[in-house]
Simulated assay, not measured.
Amino acid sequence: MRKRVAILGSTGSIGTQALEVVAANPDRFEVVALAAGGSNPRLLAEQAIAFDVPLVAVARGSAAEDVQLALYAEAQRRGYAHGDHRVPRLVVGPDAATEVARTPCDVVLNGMTGAVGLLPTLAALETGVTLALANKESLIIGGELVTGAASPGQLVPVDSEHSALAQAMRGERAGDVRKLIVTASGGPFRGRTRAELADVTPEQAMAHPTWDMGPVITINSATLVNKGLEVIEAHLLFDIGFDRIEVVVHPPSIVHSMVEFVDGATMVQASPPDMKLPIALGLAWPERVPDAAAGCDWTRPATWEFFPLDDEAFPAVSLARKAGTFGRTGPAVFNAANEVCVDAFVGGHLGFLGIVETVGAVLEEHLSDPDAARQEMTLDGVLSADTWARERATELVERR
């Protein structure tokens, strides 16, 4: 029986690759719903008609008409007049992705970017379906709200690093794990000193040496904020203390992460850098999809290099540990301030080093607030902290 899949963020990097996995395995998967922001109505329409999707959601109300027209145009091109293709039902608005997350299906793939993925993540978990999670921000800011809503085995990580950790720990006892080692490519500025990063441009930050990702994640990889978020994510997914989660720089991105066990053995998950492998595993979990991606070519000589993380040049990981150790709304503030700062950097209103500096200032202000230390985790509290952090980060950016 085919698994019914709903894809959130279908026009982004994760969503488009997920649809390629589906297209290559029509006997295993069918797409029952798509959700996107609305910035690329033509692509969304092409996806919906090509996969004969009955439900499409778009977040931006201003994009609704463009999406509807694109749907009719694409259906007409593919033979709608002859009854060969149907035009899907369209839902519009900020809650549209959450509605898609509740649609009857077997797997929800959350490939959205940013904190906006939190409510759809919670909605999917409430339905009891498998949640293939690429939207790390929703887990990080939701914390125990998300982990508490998930049944055992319901939450499947799609980030390549956490997929690697999940694979390495299959069949192992949690008590036998000594530490998790999360690998980082080092981004486009590996080896540079902090002083050499002062004049970095958005174009340079977008030139990732290994992965082809969306703009926000790519810039987060350049600052290593992304790796900081992944440390928090690993803590929440596997219930491992921050003192037992390490980051090591591995430029080839062949080893996606490692698990060291108490007897000294280290389990490594290795494959060429291709997100289709963890995406396919997330959709089919716990099964594997044959030929989802190419394996390593062992007939050619290869060297796997590992380097320690330069915390002085890239302090984002240490800052994320601080937010994660504090817990509560600390990670939400860290993430929200970063999203504002990344937008400011792309818009030319903030320097590269100013991203993490501003995030750090906002986080310190939050952690020093006695009320933050006493606050219980609630959805309203998380959303309130997210809003405050965005406003405060905006204020600090404007001052700079």
Results as ranks from 00 to 15, higher is better:
Ala332His: 08
Thr303Glu: 15
Arg300Phe: 02
Phe306Ile: 03
Phe352Gly: 07
Ala344Asp: 02
Asn335His: 06
His349Gln: 14
Glu305Ala: 14
Ser318Met: 06
Val333Met: 05
Arg300Ala: 14
Ala320Asn: 11
Phe307Asp: 10
Cys341Lys: 08
Ala313His: 09
Thr358Trp: 03
Val340Ser: 10
Leu353Tyr: 00
Glu305Asn: 13
Ala337Asp: 05
Ala313Phe: 02
Lys322His: 12
Leu367Ile: 02
Val382Ile: 15
Thr387Ile: 00
Thr387Val: 01
Leu309Glu: 15
Ala361Cys: 00
Asp297Tyr: 07
Asp371Gly: 00
Trp304Pro: 01
Thr387Trp: 11
Arg321Asn: 06
Asp369Glu: 11
Asn338Val: 01
Leu281Gln: 13
Trp304Arg: 06
Glu376Tyr: 00
Ile355Trp: 05
Gly330Ala: 07
His366Thr: 02
Leu367Ser: 06
His366Cys: 04
Leu353Ser: 05
Asn338Pro: 01
Gly324Cys: 10
Asp343Ala: 15
Ala316Arg: 12
Ala385Ile: 04
Ala336Glu: 08
Pro286Asp: 10
Ala284Tyr: 13
Asn335Pro: 03
Val289Asn: 10
His366Trp: 14
Gly351Phe: 02
Cys341His: 02
Gly354Ser: 09
Ala320Asp: 09
Ala320Val: 03
Thr358Ser: 09
Ala385Cys: 08
Cys341Leu: 04
Leu309Met: 14
Gly354Thr: 01
Ser384Lys: 13
Gly330Cys: 06
Asp310Cys: 11
Glu364His: 10
Thr329Asp: 06
Ala316Asp: 10
Gly354Phe: 05
Thr299Arg: 14
Ala313Gly: 14
Glu312Ser: 12
Leu319Pro: 06
Gly360Asp: 07
Ala361His: 08
Thr299Asn: 11
Gly348Gln: 05
Gly324Leu: 10
Thr299Gly: 02
Ala323Pro: 04
Val359Cys: 08
Glu287Ala: 14
Phe326Lys: 08
Leu383Pro: 01
Ala292Gly: 11
Gly330Lys: 00
Leu309Trp: 12
Ala280Arg: 04
Ala372Asn: 10
Gln375Cys: 05
Asp297Met: 06
Arg321Glu: 04
Ala284Arg: 06
Ala373Gly: 15
Thr325Lys: 13
Glu365His: 04
Glu364Thr: 11
Asp343His: 12
Gly351Tyr: 04
Gly324His: 11
Trp285Glu: 06
Asp310Pro: 09
Ala373Pro: 00
Ala373Ile: 00
Cys296Asn: 11
Ser368Gly: 15
Pro331Met: 04
Val359Ile: 09
Asp310His: 10
Pro315Gly: 12
His366Glu: 12
Gly295Asn: 12
Ala373Leu: 01
Ala320Met: 08
Leu283Val: 05
Ala373Asp: 09
Val362Ile: 00
Val362Phe: 03
Val289Met: 10
Ala332Glu: 09
Thr329Cys: 06
Asn338Met: 02
Gly327Glu: 07
Cys296Ile: 15
Gly381Glu: 08
Leu353Asn: 14
Trp304Asp: 01
Asp310Phe: 05
Gly354Ala: 05
Phe334Asn: 10
Gln375Ala: 15
Val340Thr: 13
Ala373Trp: 01
Leu319Phe: 07
Leu367Asp: 06
Val289Thr: 12
His366Pro: 02
Glu357Lys: 01
Val317Ser: 13
Ser318Glu: 13
